[in-house]
Amino acid sequence: MFSLIFSDKETPLVARLRHIESIGSQQNEQLKTIWFQIQSHLNDITLKPIAWEDHITLIADQEKLITYNVASSTLFNTLKSAFNEREILSITDNQNFVPVILGNQTKHLNAILNETTVKAKDSAVFQIKNFIRAVKAKDLKTITGGTEGEYFPIELHINDNQVEPTIKSVMDIVSHNSWFDVNFSGSFFSNKELMGELKIVLLISLILLYFILASQFESFVLPLIILLEVPIDLAGAFLFLKLFGMSINLMSMIGLVVMSGIIVNDSILKIDTIIQLQRQGYPLLKALLVAGQRRLKPILMTSLTTILALVPLLFSSGLGAELQAPLAVALIGGMLLGTIVSLYFIPLCYYYFTKRI
């Protein structure tokens, strides 16, 4: 059996349907069934339709070939020459092949089969149409391949909170079919991996900051008071993300890491000023008040300049604006709450900590 194909001349989450064995038309029918089942279960999602391509398969009658002593290779070469008799060259453009044919008309398939003859081994001549049967069928217009073989991708543009239910629904549909299996890829998984890495980066940064502060203040407890600001500021950032209807994604996580590094500086300066005043002979309460007066304007100026510089990102439009907005919201929310924490909460914690010593 051999075939000649004529063409009548096309995230988020991607479900990759991979066929386990080659099963021809049954495979295509099963792919249609799976596609319609997924579309019916996910009513609020419109799937990209499957691109099909019509083709004609020429099937040789092996019994007739043996009866009339015609070799299969001779039949194949004759057909190949008949279909390409006027083709002088082929122009290649990436993966597109454009044949250059002499003349301004193309022959119909039936005309080619009627006009073409084939020689048997005993030099007898027969019409090639006596040994050929044409079967019309449909197949995929494009084939996508990867490390695990060829597969059919189904793109699902959904929100992050819909990913797990969607994966479960698709897996339930495909599990009832023994000819296909499914795996998933897309920006959801890559972002999840990057967010995990950013969490590790944030944790390592806080650990390193703790050891630096411990060596600077010569205390193992005092750095914990300063670092206590970080989870409080994170709560402010999460609150602002919630108010603006944004999710915790890669850009907002970067904003949280940057915010944690900026806002901790205010608490470090405040505590360091208090300690310096105590060494100069100021009592604890007087040192808190004087340090608050001296550091009020620098802390407010630092926070306000950062916040005001980020405000235009909330109202900007164009390329990249949707990516920058979560970063700006996370930074602004953390900085607003962090400023209040640096001015009042951290000195208060230091006051109660010092009184107990």
Rank of each mutant, 00 (worst) to 15 (best):
G245Q: 11
L250G: 01
Y151M: 00
I248Y: 14
L222S: 05
L206R: 05
G186F: 06
K199M: 08
D233H: 05
I204W: 03
L227F: 03
W179L: 15
Y210M: 00
G245P: 11
S219P: 04
A237K: 14
L198C: 03
I263Q: 10
L227N: 04
S185Q: 14
E218G: 13
I262C: 05
V264L: 12
G149S: 15
N161M: 11
I275H: 02
E150H: 12
Y210F: 09
A287P: 05
I167T: 02
G186W: 08
E229T: 12
Q216W: 15
F184R: 04
T147M: 07
L239P: 00
L256F: 02
F188H: 00
Q280D: 07
I158L: 13
A237D: 12
K270Y: 11
W179N: 10
S190F: 03
A287W: 11
Y151P: 05
R279Q: 15
E155M: 14
Y151F: 10
S178Q: 01
W179H: 01
E148C: 15
E197R: 11
E150R: 13
N159M: 07
S205G: 13
E229H: 09
L239F: 11
L209Q: 01
D181A: 08
N159W: 13
L234C: 14
M253K: 02
G236H: 06
L228P: 02
G255H: 03
I204R: 04
L228I: 00
R279Y: 12
S187K: 03
W179P: 01
F184H: 13
A287T: 02
